[in-house]
Design a protein around this nucleic acid. Sequence first.
DNA 1: CTGAAAGCGCTTACAG
DNA 2: CTGAAAGCGCTTACAG
Lengths: 356, 356
Amino acid sequence: MDAPRQQATTVPGPRSGPVRLADVAEAAGVSRALASRVLNGDPAARAAAGTKARIVETAARLGYVPNVAAKSLRGNRTGLIGLVVHDLSSPIYLELMRGAREEAARHSYFLVLGDVDELLADEEAFRILISGRRVDGIVMQGGHGELDRRVGDIARALPTVVVNAPTDVEHEGATQVYPDEVAATRLLTEHLMGLGHRRIGLVSGPRQSMTNRLREEGIVTALAAAGLELREEDRVHGEWSADGGRAGVDQLVDRWGAGVDRPSALIAGNSLVGIGMLGALARHDLVIPRDLSVAAVHDTWINEHLAPSLTAVSLPLHEVGTVAVRTLLAGSHGGRHILTDPPPVLHARGSTGAAG
Amino acid sequence: MDAPRQQATTVPGPRSGPVRLADVAEAAGVSRALASRVLNGDPAARAAAGTKARIVETAARLGYVPNVAAKSLRGNRTGLIGLVVHDLSSPIYLELMRGAREEAARHSYFLVLGDVDELLADEEAFRILISGRRVDGIVMQGGHGELDRRVGDIARALPTVVVNAPTDVEHEGATQVYPDEVAATRLLTEHLMGLGHRRIGLVSGPRQSMTNRLREEGIVTALAAAGLELREEDRVHGEWSADGGRAGVDQLVDRWGAGVDRPSALIAGNSLVGIGMLGALARHDLVIPRDLSVAAVHDTWINEHLAPSLTAVSLPLHEVGTVAVRTLLAGSHGGRHILTDPPPVLHARGSTGAAG
DNA sequence: CTGAAAGCGCTTACAG
DNA sequence: CTGAAAGCGCTTACAG
């Protein structure tokens, strides 16, 4: 793990190893203090323009790169943000990660990856991440029951932003950032009603989860505006996964076989659920959208390539990531931010059609 | 960004802020040196068992967590590994990321996320990551032309492991870790031949990419063993993406329309390509597997939920991630590791059937 | 075996 | 405006 000095030919002095600030200062004939100030753009440093230029040029020539550990120790700031996620396998949250990473980069921050389950299993790692001044703040994906319960502890130790999965509790000190879930399913429902659907079902995640409740609210609101309702027998709750979607469809098909009328359209609580539903419906020989229209929350690249392609509403997850990091670095403590801009966007595709 | 002291009630001394080693030493009545040695499990520290226990217990009671920046500065080691990836949207590499993260955690390391395009666009960030002693080493995803060209520079500055995409060049100092690509497509081909297919086509990524060449090699080898060949008119090269798969199918269908005979089975160069192919074939009214069997390299959770479900060979990407990190931390410099254990595994599903 | 002291590389009050 | 000096929190030769 040795890092051979880079500029051996340029600086043939006795010292080996990476170029330090002291080396730059010496080569430029100034003090370390001045070199530090000029290189950091301290406006108070008003050295002769020539001196400034010489310092900058010397640093470049020597290939000086500041030692991050020293900066951290001195400045009490690591330049790192912890991104704590569960469910890395889901394509849904990658866009959020990407948004977070981009915004972090804009502020010269890097992201440190944490996995919820791992962190909960390894108390030592958890403590180092949270209390070891390992990172300057935490952006964590909400909606993981066990971790949600510890948000208060985390926020007490570090600036914390909870993204995406809203929770009931106003976690003391933690800021929440999430998209406009209600608007998303309202849009989806209006799209289906515009196609003539009057009876719309739902396959979603855990009934009591805040995310599900908000998504149901959007559907119920939109239906109510047209004098319609979301019937109890048309909804099914399970996991936020493709397996959950498949299980949901199996349940509904059982009900229909037992004499319950079929709705003409189904909303998938999220994109994974939607993928599972399409596969399961095909296996039950139901043709989409002829027999049933299907539309999902969340748009990923996959939707376009499914057969039929999957109608979906996209939430501004990239912005959620961006705003989360920006909020964190701005030093916000507490409160909820519901992102209403940009609004959810409907992507109408092959899986939705006119009501039969 | 203040970190309120955690144990204010336990240590009501004048000092506020996080508990330091010095606080532990003082409270335990020993020197900082001894406290450091005992807490770090230095075998040379043979203090009276009682003293040792007292130090450990005091540290726990005060909620002592070492300051990472100070450790890094002193020890010249950050406890961080840079994971540099392109194509975060692909479900394929998530398993690799997960393997890397797990192995890193096992060694008390964290992963810092880097994006290839971003790093190439921001020279400053690149330099800090590579030369700022920001991380102790780099695991980077190969196969990105521009970054591949800089591997030599990176490996000169830091221990470097290139994962997954093999390259032609033996990058000086960089270690390569990748799965047994040839065995994977050989397995896929044998599966298809076992179903009676004698003419097998391929839709893959860039023809000259090392990954494609190895995958082709597996097909050609397996076919040759049965006296068969991979015909020029049955192969198509493009992007490693669902769009690439769709474009590939469109091209093949054009050829078939122009009088070329159809093969009875197609291999998808990777799982994204396979997803794109299934969608495109459906749009051309080809029924899978009746008209054509399809099988892909890489297995992800999606395959099972497609309609038809997609036959695929899984590569041990989790192990690639694991081995990459292990190799890096073991201090290996250079060489190629082809992972032959565990071997690729075939997952036969609905998209492959007996040759018509 | 243990402690006092030096030092990792940086920044920032504090003097001048 | 600039420099000398202190100090961030830790570990490890070096003495004892």
